[in-house]
Simulated scan of single mutants.
Amino acid sequence: MIDKLHYISQAAQGGSHLDAIENVLRANGKWIQLRIKYQQEPGEDPNNLEQHILESAIAANELCKRYGAKLIVNDYPWIALRSGADGVHLGLSDMPIPEARKIVGSKMIIGGTANTFEHILQRIDDGADYIGLGPYRFTTTKENLSPVVGLAGYMDIINQVKQAGISIPIVAIGGIKTDDITALMDIGLHGVAISAALTNHTDLFKKIEYIYNQLQEPLP
């Protein structure tokens, strides 16, 4: 089952991605996407970054298992596999889903980013288990941002999805704030992916409980 609340990791203020992930897990977050982005310096060995992400993914997976949550690794199918994660999420410019499926096998969850209805059709054809549709608004957490979809764009795309009889879970991503959730759910989206609105919040228990209520889903 694809949870309705996806936490996209950021480094906590004065801490790490793992610190932020554990904070969310302690507050009953149940779906974690480890998303570590890093600007590589000229001449730097790219393997250093991937080794760091692998080590972080292994540690994040241990945390998720302790709290009964699922871990999704952004971008790297082989890291998702080696870390024991539950899934991998692939952007539009990342490895094609069919190629990733050959690496991770038939049982691992694969999510795919989409920006248009045509992307959704392609993701379904490629075998995605869920889709992250966005960005909802401009966000500084992602480089090379796709065109902003906005509320009207979501309404148009989800209407096309309904008319086509498509039932794949579609999660709103990109700059989502808690005040956006009710309107997005009313359109017919499955859920939301949130990053900054959770990373440094001071009372995550109340925040996550409030979000699950907005998602029309009881707290796990």
Score class of each variant (00 low, 15 high):
89 H>K: 11
89 H>M: 07
92 L>K: 15
93 S>N: 15
93 S>E: 15
95 M>H: 06
95 M>R: 11
96 P>I: 09
96 P>T: 11
98 P>W: 08
99 E>S: 12
101 R>S: 13
102 K>A: 10
104 V>P: 12
104 V>D: 13
106 S>F: 06
108 M>V: 07
109 I>Q: 07
110 I>M: 10
113 T>V: 12
114 A>V: 04
115 N>C: 03
117 F>Q: 05
121 L>T: 12
121 L>H: 10
121 L>I: 11
121 L>Q: 15
122 Q>N: 12
123 R>S: 06
125 D>F: 05
127 G>R: 09
128 A>P: 08
130 Y>N: 01
130 Y>S: 02
135 P>N: 05
135 P>M: 02
135 P>V: 00
136 Y>V: 00
138 F>N: 08
140 T>I: 07
142 K>I: 03
143 E>N: 14
144 N>E: 14
144 N>W: 01
144 N>T: 12
144 N>S: 13
145 L>V: 10
145 L>S: 06
146 S>A: 15
146 S>M: 12
147 P>M: 04
147 P>H: 10
151 L>Q: 10
151 L>H: 11
152 A>T: 13
153 G>A: 04
155 M>I: 12
156 D>R: 12
157 I>L: 01
157 I>W: 02
158 I>N: 09
159 N>G: 03
160 Q>Y: 02
160 Q>W: 02
163 Q>D: 11
163 Q>H: 05
165 G>D: 05
165 G>Y: 00
165 G>S: 03
165 G>A: 02
167 S>T: 13
169 P>D: 09
169 P>E: 10
170 I>C: 02
170 I>Q: 02
171 V>T: 11
172 A>H: 05
172 A>F: 01
173 I>P: 03
173 I>G: 02
175 G>N: 08
176 I>L: 03
178 T>V: 13
179 D>L: 09
181 I>C: 04
183 A>F: 01
186 D>M: 00
186 D>I: 00
187 I>N: 07
187 I>K: 02
188 G>P: 01
188 G>H: 03
189 L>K: 01
189 L>R: 05
189 L>F: 01
189 L>M: 04
192 V>L: 06
192 V>E: 10
193 A>H: 08
194 I>N: 07
195 S>N: 09
196 A>K: 13
200 N>E: 12
202 T>N: 14
202 T>E: 15
204 L>D: 11
204 L>E: 09
205 F>R: 14
209 E>C: 00
209 E>W: 00
211 I>S: 06
212 Y>Q: 08
213 N>C: 07
213 N>T: 14
214 Q>M: 13
214 Q>T: 09
